[in-house]
Amino acid sequence: MINASKVCGILMFSALIISPNISAQKMTQCDTSTCVNYFEQYRKAAKRGHTQAMATLGQMYYHAYGTEKNEKLALKFLKKASRSKDAAAQFKAGYIYLTSEEYKDIDDGIEYLEKAADNEFKGANFVLGMVHLDKKYGRQDIKQADKYLAKSYEAKFEQMPEAVQFIETTMTLDAATFPKLFAEMQKKPLQKDDDGSINWPTGNIEIITISSPSLETTFDQQLLVFRKPIKSVGTRFHGKNCVQRMTCVSVGIADGSAFANTFLNTFSGANVSN
């Protein structure tokens, strides 16, 4: 399988293409006094109405970070953040609805993923495409799958080569069945490697690994912004999306690739892993 942290963006500097490989900090279960303290600070900041605090608090409930795991409260705060168009919160809420045993609701999951896709959250189009592609979600619609996967391909999402390989293994990928995806593939063809796998062309891409701040550093940066109460629920960074804000780091779901891999690994049908 393609590494979830592989090639997450392309920046052009003169004739050189640099593809930064960013290792995002992941939130995991934690019950230390430090984690409990961060949880309490975020709980207070969320109460004061900070959208990003709500989004992170929702993740803390989901990952049992500084508190017990509680998907109900995770959804509560992620959905609150979603109302202010926090794309990462929308994506995570959609993911929980699609995968939770207790709160599974495919329609709600698709609704939140569509909101995340509209707000250009990385990975949202890919997961939507897979949900509509795979029969096991009960919403198979090849036309919709084609639409979302074409958008994901156009954005050169990391896992698209594996999705293409899955489609070619289990059905026909041509202009008649997947017209939009097929058209994008003609514009930017994938390359076939010696081992038979297909991948994005590397060309003159230089891979640079960039270490992200520690989880604690990220929390401290965010909490500085949350010190003062605000009058209404919403972001204090009007006109800027999450990627553009230094203090807006969606820990645990900063990269939709991790969740896209979850769906790719559980496709019904042929296994396309290499």
Rank of each mutant, 00 (worst) to 15 (best):
205 I>R: 14
200 W>Y: 09
207 I>D: 10
191 Q>N: 12
170 T>F: 05
192 K>I: 09
181 L>A: 03
212 S>K: 12
188 K>L: 12
200 W>D: 00
205 I>S: 15
195 D>S: 07
173 L>N: 01
191 Q>I: 09
185 M>A: 03
176 A>C: 07
190 L>S: 05
204 N>Q: 09
178 F>K: 05
177 T>V: 11
171 M>D: 06
175 A>G: 07
205 I>G: 09
184 E>L: 04
169 T>C: 07
189 P>D: 08
204 N>C: 10
193 D>N: 15
175 A>Y: 11
206 E>I: 15
179 P>E: 00
207 I>G: 04
210 I>L: 04
206 E>F: 12
174 D>S: 11
167 I>C: 00
206 E>T: 15
166 F>L: 14
189 P>W: 11
192 K>C: 06
169 T>Q: 11
187 K>S: 05
179 P>H: 02
212 S>L: 15
194 D>E: 10
198 I>D: 01
206 E>R: 13
180 K>G: 00
191 Q>R: 14
190 L>P: 08
196 G>M: 08
200 W>L: 02
209 T>N: 12
183 A>N: 06
205 I>K: 14
187 K>G: 06
185 M>D: 02
206 E>W: 08
166 F>A: 03
184 E>K: 15
188 K>D: 14
211 S>Q: 14
202 T>S: 04
182 F>C: 01
193 D>R: 12
203 G>I: 09
197 S>D: 12
186 Q>R: 07
176 A>N: 13
190 L>Q: 04
172 T>K: 05
166 F>Q: 03
193 D>F: 09
185 M>S: 06
174 D>T: 07
177 T>C: 03
209 T>C: 09
208 I>N: 02
177 T>K: 06
208 I>W: 06
183 A>F: 02
184 E>F: 01
179 P>V: 01
197 S>A: 14
197 S>Y: 11
187 K>M: 06
194 D>T: 15
175 A>T: 07
